[in-house]
């Protein structure tokens, strides 16, 4: 055994890429990733930002999760809505959240939206689009409220209203026709709900309910869910089986042998916890 064992290399492992390419060239179909074929929406209003997302995760034609959370908390007043490959969105936001927490602890200030955007876009750019996450980042900071989007290749833009994901075309239609500057909170929530619902109803990749978060200078207020657009269907039948449906072929009982019963109480000898 060596005295100084090699640490595992940090970052992604590409060991299997060559093997997978060889398998695929021989006709093996690789499994698809879970994609959040998604509708995410963000709208600025006079006192803050409202982010909305649907709650369906898909793997091919199958609904993988009916109530998944696509709104990720980055800091108290900054949230991030993710579309694209589900694991990429989860991991990237989780990782960046850690960096941001350290940044806030080191500087003693609330981190700005622009900083979060810059950290994420530089991370995504480094992976040249292979990390498939499209994000909308909204929040309130020392410079007011901001709404940015970042595409998987690492380009970003700042706009007063934004949508991303496969349902973005339906959602854009609602936003382009109804958005006005300086809406009040209720009107903005209604607009975000309707834009997300347009995605939910018209895009097969989006579904179930609208989740929402409102970010203002007071902090964040979450609505999980804000509105259930399509509720679960009600079945009339009961599909249970009478007992005995599964035939018992053989029975064998193996009893436990209890060798000794010992009850240990908390004593002075136990090591106390240091504070």
């Amino acid at each position: 055994m060596s005295l100084c064992p090699d640490l595992p290399r940090p970052g992604f492992s590409f060991d299997n890429c060559k093997r997978n390419a060889a398998l695929e060239s021989r006709g093996y179909k690789s499994k698809g990733f879970v994609k959040t074929g998604t509708t995410i929406v963000g709208v600025c209003y006079k006192d803050g930002v409202v982010l909305g997302a649907d709650s369906r995760a898909t793997g091919g034609n199958i609904v993988a999760d009916k109530f998944c959370d696509k709104l990720h908390k980055m800091s108290n007043k900054i949230f991030c809505a993710g579309a694209g490959t589900a694991s990429d969105c989860d991991k990237v936001t989780e990782m960046i959240r850690g960096q941001i927490a350290l940044l806030e602890l080191n500087s003693g200030r609330d981190v700005r939206v622009a900083s979060v955007v810059r950290i994420i876009k530089q991370y995504l750019y480094r992976y040249q689009g292979h990390i498939g996450c499209a994000l909308i980042i909204g929040g309130y900071d020392a410079t007011g409220c901001h709404l940015h989007s970042i595409a998987p290749h690492g380009s970003s833009m700042e706009l007063p209203y934004l949508t991303m994901g496969s349902g973005s075309l339906a959602a854009t239609a609602v936003l382009e026709s109804r958005w006005k500057p300086d809406l009040d909170l209720e009107a903005t929530k209604k607009l975000v709900r309707d834009a997300t619902a347009a995605g939910i109803l018209n895009d097969l990749g989006s579904g179930s309910s609208v989740n929402m978060v409102v970010l203002t200078k007071k902090g964040n207020e979450t609505f999980y869910p804000y509105d259930i657009v399509c509720a679960k269907g009600v079945r009339s039948g009961l599909y249970d089986f009478p007992s005995g449906t599964t035939k018992v072929l053989r029975t064998k009982v193996i009893p436990y042998e209890i060798e000794k019963v010992e009850v240990r109480g908390a004593s002075e000898e136990d090591e106390p916890m240091d504070i």
Binding site: K121, Q122, L124, Y125, G129, A151, H153, G154, S155, S156
Partner: peptide
């Protein structure tokens, strides 16, 4: 050109 490249 590419938005990501030129921004970077």
């Amino acid at each position: 050109g590419s938005a990501a490249d030129t921004q970077c």
